[in-house]
Simulated assay, not measured.
Amino acid sequence: MPLPLIRDAHLNYPRVGHAFFMRHGGVSEGIYASLNGGVGSKDSRDAVMENRRRMAEAIGVAPDRFLVPFQVHSNLAIAVDRPWAEDERPQVDGIVTRTPGLAIGVTGADCGMVLFADPQGGVVGACHAGWKGALNDVAGATISTMLGLGARRDRIVAVLGPTIAQKSYEVGPEFVARFTDIDPKFSRFFKPSVNEGHSLFDLPGFIGMRCRAAGVGLFENTDRDTYSDEESFYSYRRATHRGEADYGRLVGVIVLR
């Protein structure tokens, strides 16, 4: 049975394959049920690797050519042209390639997973943008790395996968200050919450701003809220609110044919 996944029409090119995988179709159990792609979770490693194998098959590559970095909430991005061993995963949050048949991806569970493609230039990329990565412009770093491989800004299409929505992302005043201390104009990404002194943060909107500021030709948001749609997605914040010990990870991946 095909894995449940999301594909965006704006990335439908003959040379490009992509997927934002949902949480069903795997072998993990309990709070990880069922397509947990996070090797950093406390889930059974065998289960996660089987889930990754199924994702690789769905995107049309061998498991050893399905690459997801060790994410550290940074603004670091690298270009890759060959597979790496699982214990050699680079500690970055952006990954770019022009090598056909090399599927590159990132994980998320509320954080933004952004897939990039310049189909004419033959360059694709992916980045993991939580609030720290977004604030420090991991999207811009990933786009700059794509330019180094021959991409052109105005040809790049960027698509944001399932991400926590503003209505679900309440933050305190100290969080808002992290942004407005850097640029007071960032206040537009916050609106008052029903809880006094708190705000709702528009992470998808902020990521979109970063992509547009970097000059991409098109930015699209799949507009799926990981927090409120438990049937389809994992959510770090939902798990935290419930006092659960851990949470599963979604995967977004892109490949050149």
Score class of each variant (00 low, 15 high):
92 V>H: 00
118 D>N: 11
119 P>M: 00
116 F>P: 09
107 T>S: 13
155 R>D: 15
77 A>Y: 06
96 V>G: 10
76 L>N: 13
99 T>V: 10
90 P>A: 01
127 C>H: 03
126 A>N: 12
125 G>I: 07
163 T>W: 08
133 G>M: 01
72 V>K: 06
165 A>V: 04
160 L>K: 12
102 L>M: 11
117 A>G: 07
107 T>I: 14
87 D>I: 06
163 T>S: 11
104 I>G: 08
145 T>H: 10
83 P>I: 00
97 T>C: 10
117 A>Q: 09
91 Q>L: 01
86 E>C: 04
91 Q>M: 15
164 I>C: 04
89 R>N: 03
162 P>H: 06
156 I>T: 11
122 G>F: 09
134 A>F: 00
143 I>A: 02
141 A>Q: 14
147 L>R: 06
160 L>F: 06
104 I>T: 12
101 G>S: 09
163 T>L: 08
117 A>I: 07
116 F>A: 05
164 I>Q: 01
106 V>E: 09
122 G>P: 14
126 A>S: 13
113 M>W: 02
86 E>S: 11
162 P>A: 05
144 S>V: 06
113 M>F: 04
124 V>S: 08
110 D>T: 02
103 A>I: 03
143 I>M: 01
149 L>G: 10
134 A>S: 15
78 I>L: 13
99 T>I: 02
